[in-house]
Simulated assay, not measured.
Amino acid sequence: MDPSILANVYAFTAIGVGIILAAAGLGSALGWGLICSKYIEGIARQPEMRPQLMGQMLFTGGLMEAFPMIVLGMAMWFVFANPFVGALVG
Score class of each variant (00 low, 15 high):
1 M>E: 08
3 P>T: 13
3 P>S: 15
6 L>N: 12
9 V>D: 05
9 V>N: 01
10 Y>A: 09
11 A>E: 14
11 A>P: 14
12 F>M: 15
12 F>L: 14
12 F>I: 10
14 A>Y: 08
14 A>Q: 08
15 I>Y: 03
15 I>L: 11
16 G>T: 04
17 V>K: 06
21 L>K: 15
23 A>Y: 07
24 A>F: 08
24 A>G: 01
24 A>V: 04
25 G>E: 10
26 L>E: 05
27 G>K: 03
27 G>Q: 02
27 G>N: 10
27 G>T: 03
27 G>Y: 09
28 S>L: 08
29 A>F: 09
31 G>V: 05
32 W>R: 09
34 L>E: 12
34 L>C: 13
35 I>N: 05
41 E>V: 05
41 E>R: 00
42 G>A: 05
44 A>W: 03
45 R>S: 15
45 R>L: 07
46 Q>V: 05
48 E>M: 07
50 R>G: 02
50 R>W: 00
51 P>Y: 02
54 M>F: 04
58 L>A: 08
59 F>I: 03
60 T>M: 03
63 L>N: 05
64 M>R: 08
64 M>K: 10
66 A>V: 02
66 A>G: 01
67 F>N: 15
71 V>G: 06
72 L>K: 15
72 L>R: 09
76 M>W: 03
76 M>Y: 09
77 W>K: 15
79 V>L: 11
79 V>Q: 13
81 A>W: 07
82 N>L: 03
83 P>A: 10
85 V>Y: 06
85 V>T: 07
86 G>V: 06
87 A>D: 11
88 L>V: 13
88 L>A: 10
